[in-house]
Amino acid sequence: MQHTRTQDTLVGLFVAAGIVALFFLSLQVSNIRSFMPADTYVITARFSNSGGLKVKSPVTVAGVRIGRVSNIYIDKETYESVVEMSIESKYDTLPEDTSATIYTAGLLGEQYINLDPGGSFDYLKNGGRIEITQSAIVLEEVIGRFLFQKAAE
């Protein structure tokens, strides 16, 4: 009897340790909160070049992440890149004249969208569109322009 008692305890401890490990992986290692589908609304922005922007790239205001890129597609008529962003509902006070810029985190890091709030008192709503945008800086283009300039001198 004593034997099975210790066996029970050991099995219990084993299962508990396994579950703790699973919780550790979901909470400490991956950020489970970002998995929870928070309430969001969608706004779009058009860029002449969205560079290396990807679905799930962060959208920030003043360096704080307020949403993620949810979809990127090309407008068949204007050949512009249309970027849809899901913004968390608690950040619902983005002015209509907010501008969007694609930045790169570090020299070779991933690209993200930074929103620069304007001064309007009308706020962007679900389905709203950001008019003022600045495209991604493509490093090759910058280097190419620089070389041309040097050659011209």
């Binding site: 084993f14 490990a21 699973l22 550790f24 992986l25």
Partner: peptide, 15 residues
């Protein structure tokens, strides 16, 4: 049943 628990433990201890 044991394998997922063991693998999770392995990853946790490894990290």
């Amino acid at each position: 049943l044991s394998m997922p628990l063991l693998a999770a433990l392995f990853s946790m201890v490894g990290i």
